[in-house]
């Protein structure tokens, strides 16, 4: 069990980054590609949250952290929408 929050953040970031590469390399195009894109962007959002909270210290300011989380969440949804357009309009 890791007690230090900074170390826990580093472990989580490393695992999520490795998982993103694995998801990208094991799926092709079509529905699988769309799903993997969604998972990769979800991981990117979680990683951004971790950096903001633990590395940039926003855990001390929960209101600001929530604000950044919402804006980044909507931004990742925008990216997902743009990523899915070619698939949806095929």
């Amino acid at each position: 069990m890791i007690h230090d929050a900074t170390t826990r953040a580093w472990v989580a970031l490393s695992i999520l980054s490795a998982a993103s590469v694995m998801v990208a390399s094991t799926t092709g195009t079509g529905v699988g590609g769309s799903l993997s894109g969604a998972v990769i962007l979800l991981f990117a959002w979680v990683k951004a949250r971790i950096v903001l909270a633990r590395y940039l210290g926003l855990w001390q300011a929960p209101g600001w952290l929530a604000g950044f989380n919402w804006v980044l969440g909507f931004y990742c949804l925008l990216l997902l929408g743009l990523f899915l357009v070619p698939e949806l309009t095929r």
């Binding site: 970031l13 980054s17 993103s20 590469v21 998801v23 990208a24 894109g37 990769i40 962007l41 991981f43 990117a44 990683k47 951004a48 950096v51 903001l52 590395y55 940039l56 990216l79 990523f83």
Partner: peptide, 22 residues
Amino acid sequence: GTAFWHMVDLVWLLLFPVIYLL
């Protein structure tokens, strides 16, 4: 100074999946 470095880190964590994976 370290906040600037974390910002560089944060930008890469968004840039890497979009360009290299998506």
